[in-house]
Amino acid sequence: MTIAANDQIDELWRVLETVLDPEVPALSVVDLGIVRDVSVEQDGGVIVTVTPTYSGCPAVQVIERDILAALAAHGVREARVRTVYAPAWTTDWMSESGRAKLKAYGIAPPGPVADHGESELVPLLRRRVAPNCPFCDSTNTEPRSDFGSTACKSLAYCNSCHQPFELFKPI
């Protein structure tokens, strides 16, 4: 690959950093870790490889459209989005800057993904903890529901500032 081609790839990544998740517009598709690869074919066509977050996430199709629109606005004439399912998306791929932006937006960032190993499918006594409050940073928080307004979030409550808040669930 030539230096010019490398520059072009870097430039394409910068364009993709401007494409925001439609449901969590604090984050770009790059912050989320759903853009897995960007490449340029011999004929100059751009291929963006993405992986879906959740199987049923309705944002996936919008994201694909937004990526193509951003590239077109940047003068890329030939582009396509390729979807891959393996390896499956994990919140461990979320960038540090993405985590900071998420918190500033009022959503607690995801903790590390638990190792499932040989654990029982349904623990009889699940130790349920919630992350620090994204508003006041208190540790006096409690989980409310594993499910939230979008597939990627759950609900918690802060006993210090008495705010309900959402957290990005580790998956």
Binding site: Y54, A88, L121, I171
Partner: peptide, 12 residues
């Protein structure tokens, strides 16, 4: 593998 991640929290 993708579906399994979701099935794990479904069963919980």
């Amino acid at each position: 593998a993708k579906s399994l991640k979701e099935a794990r929290y479904h069963v919980r």
